[in-house]
Design a protein around this nucleic acid. Structure first.
Length: 300
DNA sequence: AACATATACAACCGCAATATG
DNA sequence: CCATATTGCGGTTGTATATGT
């Protein structure tokens, strides 16, 4: 039994891409567009697996890709998002225009994870610069294969695409707490970490994947979601449709500078989620969703 | 200078979700 | 409804380069 390989590996090039291959792939995609990756190599005359072509294009050849020189702002945002989302690299990358999940993942594994690990240990207080130089300290002697020892529990990995959103708001969830409880608080205060891990919160708040509707880009659950339309106390029962267009505007690149402070992050969310001023949406409500009973099914 | 070790990152792999016939 | 193909994702590996001895 077993899976059939994604493509015949015989006679295919592997390893680093040459400039010529890049050129061919870029030219082909510019002429024919993305997609049909399986057949692309044959049609483009590349001796590569379609999967490999896709990866190369998405991670390196796409015209809107930024590479290297991850700024402190971006770094901070990655750390913050990782605290919130765990290893959902594609979601994190979705918040960083021009950055790819692979780059962020690599950056985390080589730099930020160590930094987070170091910060979680009492003594060390290193700059990212020094960490970039050589980040071998006692905290890391357990190898990088071990997960970064973040101070908080992160949501288990394995993102699940969520292409549909259908809310059943039979009764509104409890009003979120005051705004000052935000992600950095979660990070700094272990007591807040429970916000990301409390089971059984808001039992009446249903948002299971099979009920979700109309997030057709399937990209980023932060771009939609119950909080996007949910207005505590509005008393609307039944199913609420999500206006995903609103969600699609919620990218840092969409006319916003990087939202670095938690407050700005919140504002970015709130504004773009089309919430009214009274909305009490915050990151905790996100945590509610992530930890709702239904989510574990989605994240395996 | 030569070798050993660590680091960074591109690429690959396998799984799961989704689309299609 | 089912089987298969396609796509997307996160984890892991391979290797060039940097650094230490």
């Amino acid at each position: 039994m077993g899976r059939s390989p994604c493509c015949s590996k015989e006679g295919l090039n592997r390893g680093a891409w040459t400039a010529l291959e890049d050129k061919i792939l870029t030219a082909y995609i510019k002429a024919h567009g993305e997609g049909k990756w399986r057949n692309l190599p044959k049609r483009a005359g590349l001796k590569r697996c379609g999967k490999s072509c896709r990866l190369r294009w998405l991670n390196y050849l796409r015209p809107d890709i930024k590479r290297g020189n991850i700024s402190n702002d971006e770094e901070e945002l990655i750390v913050r998002l990782h605290k919130l989302l765990g290893n959902r690299w594609s979601l994190i990358a979705g918040r960083l225009p021009g950055r790819t999940d692979n780059e962020i993942k690599n950056y985390w594994n080589t730099t930020l994870g160590k930094k987070a690990s170091a910060q979680s240990s009492p003594q060390s207080k290193q700059t990212s610069q020094s960490l970039k130089k050589r980040a071998v300290d006692q905290t890391m002697t357990n190898t990088q294969s071990s997960k970064p020892a973040l101070a908080i529990q992160v949501i288990p990995t394995k993102a699940t695409r969520c292409t549909k959103v259908l809310l059943s708001l039979q009764s509104p969830p409890p009003p979120p707490p005051p705004r000052e409880i935000v992600s950095s608080a979660v990070a700094d205060d272990p007591s807040q970490a429970s916000l990301l891990n409390h089971q059984g919160a808001s039992p009446d708040f249903h948002c299971r994947p099979e009920e979700l509707q109309a997030c057709d880009d399937g990209s980023d659950f932060l771009n939609f979601g119950p909080w996007s339309e949910f207005q505590p106390g509005d008393g609307i029962g039944g199913d609420a449709l999500i206006d995903n267009d609103c969600g699609k505007n919620l990218t840092i690149g969409s006319g916003h500078s990087l939202a670095l402070s938690d407050d700005l992050l919140f504002k970015d969310w709130a504004l773009n989620r089309c919430l009214d001023d009274n909305s009490t949406l915050d990151l905790e409500s996100l945590a509610h969703l992530l930890d709702s009973e239904e989510w574990p099914e989605m994240r395996h």
